[in-house]
Design a protein around this nucleic acid. Sequence first.
DNA 1: CTGCATCCGCCTCGATACTG
DNA 2: CAGTATCGAGGCGGATGCAG
Lengths: 230, 230
Amino acid sequence: MARRFDQYCPVANAMSIVGERWALLIVRELLRGPRRYTDLTAGLPGIGTKVLATRLRELEDGGVVQRRKLPPPAASTVYELTEYGAGLEEVIHAIARWGARSLGLPKREDDVDPEWGLNAFPALLYPERARGVTETTVVRIDDDVFTVRLLDGRLGVERGAIADPDLEVATDMATFFALASGDLPPGEALGDGRVRLDGEPEALERFFRIFSFAPRLEPAPDGEPRFAHV
Amino acid sequence: MARRFDQYCPVANAMSIVGERWALLIVRELLRGPRRYTDLTAGLPGIGTKVLATRLRELEDGGVVQRRKLPPPAASTVYELTEYGAGLEEVIHAIARWGARSLGLPKREDDVDPEWGLNAFPALLYPERARGVTETTVVRIDDDVFTVRLLDGRLGVERGAIADPDLEVATDMATFFALASGDLPPGEALGDGRVRLDGEPEALERFFRIFSFAPRLEPAPDGEPRFAHV
DNA sequence: CTGCATCCGCCTCGATACTG
DNA sequence: CAGTATCGAGGCGGATGCAG
């Protein structure tokens, strides 16, 4: 059905399944939960209805998406990720971190999805650095508020503020970007008032070590390259 | 120049840069080092020369690829990743792990790139599990031999065998897949002779905990979903 | 309203041929 | 070797139609 790449290679195989235009953006939408056809069109500005229908069929054939009929009261069809499709979460996160580095700040206020944090914090999470950490943080970025919970290294994010967090951070989008990218030391941001804090300064440092879009790869033992011929 | 997705979103931005057909496969090729135009056509069976030329220009515009003229003796043009482009390594690895799960075994012997291990081991590496590990392993899979070096958690892979490794493993492709996916316990593979080992059985277990294409995400604290509305 | 199918004009893809 | 020129087939985005 779908146009395949004719090469025995994991990457080529993956791109044969989810490499078509719009496919990974559909997966991005479905990572937030089951969606109806019209929800998907709304979340994917510019997609043609025919392309959406075709992609959904192809993703179904590829074992990424399954369709489900809701019980009678709703009686509507929803699309959701299969278990295999849900495995694309780490792919989307890696893509998001890479794409964020060249994204720049939003031009208009309403460019920003008010729920962006629900995607952003899972994508920025460094699991190994979060290991063993239990801490609840309320993060206020411009007018968006999120509660970021770490429970022994596992992550949950909610919109809105929770009472009595361990740490509370307030800043603007530009500063948040700079902190998460590692370009701006937390101490400096605190010093010039770009971040307001309720909690220990060390907790702020720890927070942005755990949530960061810095590259995650250790270098090869003797510098580049990672592989060689003997 | 390139067709963009009109949405303020890191994923959409990334897909606008490297989401076009063939683009990520070109990046895959360039992750192995600088390549000439004809090397790329050879490594990408089925690509049209015009598409390759167009993609390279688009990737250059996107800051992913740069072209470089080799000094006079060679006097040839090579394409290589920029620093930003090299950041796609973790994206490609995540895609490769996901794609490998539905790839299946090769049909013909010559489907397999003889250097596949140089890509596979970096893609399978679990950095957090390799932390602090220093060990050299010679891996023989069918007729392909690789030396996998871990030096305090950092990875280097070479073709061929090194003398006096800490561990030496020999198996076939199907068993390697089963071990790396976690479907087959190392002890069982040793028991029925599908793996031959020179070293401690525990070292084999550790090796396939470090090199695995199992999902890397911790679950949310209270099960699904990873995010919620308050 | 939802979930598509159809039609249309344009752009892209893949294949082949050709040039500096 | 490193591309550009050309061309037919098909994919894409946008608008519209329509049955459940």
